[in-house]
Write a protein that binds this DNA or RNA. Structure first.
Lengths: 230, 230
DNA sequence: CAAGCTGAAAGTGTCGACAATCGACGCCTA
DNA sequence: TAGGCGTCGATTGTCGACACTTTCAGCTTG
């Protein structure tokens, strides 16, 4: 039942729940850019590399397809999703929609613990900005937004945010350095948190809009510069 | 540049993709109540019934799991998702968030064609209300909201709406008769469309809020009355 | 009579195999 | 030399098989 052939290289996966593990590994490879957009994900190759059979790989691929990380082309296989500038724009449109709501809700039911978590995350970002570690900053940025969604107290909203964010990571992981001035991130996040703490819905929406608007323009522009062909 | 042979080769050959077909059948069975919430979906049984092997069934089940229609329990199989009143509430929260945005965007870029489509859909609902066909009314209701999301011109938003709606269908299909007064549906939709045509964001949001708020309370109440036991 | 144990049946997780299909390469034809 | 056609290898879609788990009915026991 276990793979008998001695596969070289990668550690053989533990049994059961292979699907989730494969999905995690593939996701990781995609958001970290080891699998570039458009790259083919051959089931046989993945299976060989992990020392398992193709069945779990196929199921994991379906999972990632439904999350928008892979694209299935019948009879041809799975490919890492390619995001056009317009699709990135659409994604940010939804993020705006979702995060406005999340921030307002988070303000309505802000617990001291959630507030502290957000403050700590902001401090962390300021710290990372000083050290100039682009990857860590992007991660911390993501976590800050995620904490807001978490504080909104709607589990499904959080899942939705994760889905949008993971799709965006396809391109963001590629970009590497998202902002020219790392310190800018902390500065644009701060008013968002302040507005949440103050609890003024209009100010919250305004600041979220501004912050995401800046990020959106940046990412869209970078995506366009990456793929300038029609 | 090469000249592609047939400029319009519309009929893509029937994808021999069993997975999609199985997914469609299972989805159908769930939203039409033939598979009740909590029911076990045994792959072997489904495969036997359809005369195919288990592999495509498993993949289809994963697909539906990611859509929230099924729930996977490791080593035990797949079960039709059970929605608590709170989860339904959360779903409506997201619908509110998404449909507000969709309606405002739809108003911003309303084409005559989209406007006509919405008007026709409203007429259809009025018609169905007179005939008192609950299932058809629910379907027409769904289509009206979907048209608004379509008019918003964001493909991903539409997919998101479809996801939320299909989850809600688990319970709505169960309820059967959603409103006591069928004519009420048309009446609560009308101001939404009018606000969209008028193009006043605040009025749009207000009417969407009101309409969905009514529906939400109704569905949540019915779900609670259906499953008040632990 | 209820509770716990036992064993078999059913079902899942995974595997290797096989036919159908796709893409690429090279050959033939103008 | 450019373009179309057939063949070959590689990959996908699907299948049946097997070991391990879970479930459940029937039996034993307190």
């Amino acid at each position: 039942m276990r793979a008998m052939s001695p596969p070289v290289g990668l550690p053989v996966l533990a049994e059961s729940d292979l699907v989730r593990q494969v999905a995690r590994r593939l996701t990781d490879a995609i958001v970290h850019g080891r699998l570039a957009p458009g790259a083919k994900v051959a089931e046989a190759a993945v299976a060989r590399e992990l020392g398992i059979s193709r069945a779990p790989v196929r199921e994991a691929a379906r999972l990632l397809e439904s999350q928008g990380l892979l694209k299935a082309s019948p009879r041809r296989g799975f490919f890492v999703r390619e995001l056009s500038a317009q699709e990135v724009d659409e994604l940010y449109d939804l993020r705006l929609c979702v995060e406005r709501h999340a921030a307002v809700e988070a303000a309505r039911r802000l617990t001291p613990a959630a507030r502290d978590g957000l403050r700590r995350q902001l401090d962390l970002m300021r710290d990372l900005a000083r050290r100039d570690d682009p990857a860590a900053i992007v991660e911390a940025d993501y976590q800050f937004h995620r904490l807001i969604c978490e504080a909104a107290g709607n589990g499904r909203l959080l899942r939705l945010f994760d889905g949008l964010a993971s799709e965006l990571r396809i391109v963001i992981g590629l970009i590497g350095r998202l902002y020219d001035d790392p310190g800018e991130i902390a500065r644009t996040h701060e008013p968002v948190l302040e507005a949440i703490e103050a609890g003024h819905p209009e100010r919250i929406v305004a600041h979220v809009d501004h912050h995401l608007g800046v990020a959106r323009r940046e990412v869209v522009r970078l995506v366009q510069s990456l793929a300038p062909n029609p």
